[in-house]
């Protein structure tokens, strides 16, 4: 049984200059209502200056079962970080 309104994911921009961040979700009949509910539910204390709502069904997520294949190859590539390289101590501004 599920006659619920569609689920929407809510993203809030906390202030200008920052990206939108996932805050939670709301059920709503349409986009306008999703925005209004998101506003009442997630920004009662000036948490944001902008909202995105996205139908949850439209989000494509990676499979936790593939997490190792996706993310572990980065673990042995420490040469991608600046601290990997040895620079003589008297050399500055690098």
């Amino acid at each position: 049984m599920n006659n619920d309104w569609p689920l929407w994911e809510v993203f809030v921009r906390a202030k200008h200059g920052l990206s939108h961040k996932h805050a939670g979700s709301v059920h709503a009949a349409d986009a306008r209502m999703a925005l209004e509910s998101a506003r009442d539910t997630y920004t009662r204390r000036m948490e944001g200056v902008s909202l995105w709502v996205v139908p949850s069904a439209q989000i494509v997520a990676s499979d936790p079962g593939e997490a190792a294949a996706l993310f572990e190859p980065a673990a042995d590539k420490v040469y991608r970080h600046p601290t990997f390289y040895v620079i003589p101590e008297h050399v500055k501004n690098i």
Binding site: M1, N2, N3, D4, L7, G24, S25, V26, H27
Partner: peptide
């Protein structure tokens, strides 16, 4: 909403 992530519906 958090409980719904476990597969139960609001209804």
């Amino acid at each position: 909403a958090a409980a719904e992530t476990l597969g139960t519906s609001r209804e």
